[in-house]
Write a protein that binds this DNA or RNA. Structure first.
Length: 273
DNA sequence: AAGGTTACCTGCCCGC
DNA sequence: TGCGGGCAGGTAACCT
């Protein structure tokens, strides 16, 4: 489901729901694994802890407590929702965070590609899911020069490279397609054949697309909802994603779809080269 | 070392 | 109506 804008949207929704002033009575696990085993000590660590802040790093949600960090990745189909009763558990509900005031946050994930982990405070950089991550795309560290340098020895398609979380985090299949379209760069271009000027445009457009999508509350295709149950609406702004056979909004050429590394890749063959 | 492929899952949609 | 195949917003782990 979620790329950076969706995770950011969920984070903001969770902050509003929790209000950051609830003591947590319990964290209940309904199964011992998602994609990977869930560390069994998490409920013990979390007992009676207060959530002091919720952050996002890459596509991960971070629930900070005074004693450690609960890490949640939504995979493709993960969602968090608020629910009054903790007994009314539905199919694919895997984790229940019981808030102090008898409300609950429920993690649902039909495909179970999500991740749940625990990390000591100030140890995120050593965590196995975090140690290799590249810079946040909305931070200064991520620049055209940086990207040029990262791409120097890479002959892979540029689309694959900007989706590589070691290079830059948060960009997934939808936003990669949209950024490349706005930058008039073909997803098939070898990364090491792209100029600094093109990278300047690409970095600018990655920032623009992600920011616009955050403003729109993310993209709701199939089942994505915000933590408060609202739909995102950035999907209405897609220029190329899932637009195969439709006319390009710039030149009227039909949008094409090719498979790169097993992922659908939509682009305008005339505008993007 | 980079790049490609597979694997992990369920649900939905399509064509036969 | 039922079944098989293909596809879906991600990414670690494996092979070459």
């Amino acid at each position: 489901m979620p790329e950076l804008p969706e995770v950011e949207t969920v984070k903001e929704g969770l902050k509003k729901i929790i209000g950051l002033d609830n003591s947590i009575s319990k964290l209940l696990l309904k199964r011992d694994n998602l994609r990977f085993p869930i560390p069994p000590e998490i409920p013990k660590k979390f007992k009676n802890q207060k959530i002091v802040s919720i952050e996002r790093r890459a596509k991960y949600l971070l629930f900070y407590t005074p004693v450690g960090i609960l890490i949640s990745h939504l995979g493709m189909t993960g969602t968090w929702r608020e629910q009054k009763s903790s007994t009314d558990v539905q199919l694919h509900d895997h984790v229940i965070l019981q808030l102090g005031d008898h409300r609950n946050l429920i993690y649902r994930d039909p495909r179970r590609f999500g991740i749940l982990d625990w990390c000591e405070l100030d140890a995120l950089d050593q965590n196995k899911y975090f140690h290799h991550l590249g810079p946040e795309p909305l931070k200064k560290e991520f620049s055209a020069k940086y990207l040029l340098d990262k791409c120097k020895r890479r002959s892979a398609f540029i689309k694959n490279v900007i989706m590589d979380q070691k290079v830059v985090v948060g960009v997934g299949n939808i936003y990669a397609a949209e950024c490349l379209f706005l930058s008039k760069i073909s997803p098939l271009r070898p990364a090491n054949e792209i100029s600094l000027d093109e990278f300047k445009l690409l970095v600018k457009n990655i920032r623009k697309v992600l920011k616009d999508a955050i403003k729109a509350g993310g993209s709701s295709i199939s089942d994505f909802k915000q933590a408060e149950g609202d739909m995102g609406y950035f999907q209405h702004k897609f220029k190329v994603y899932a637009k195969e056979g439709k006319e390009c909004s710039v030149c009227k050429t039909k949008i094409e779809n090719i498979v790169l590394s097993g992922r659908s890749s939509f682009y305008c063959p005339k505008c993007q080269s």
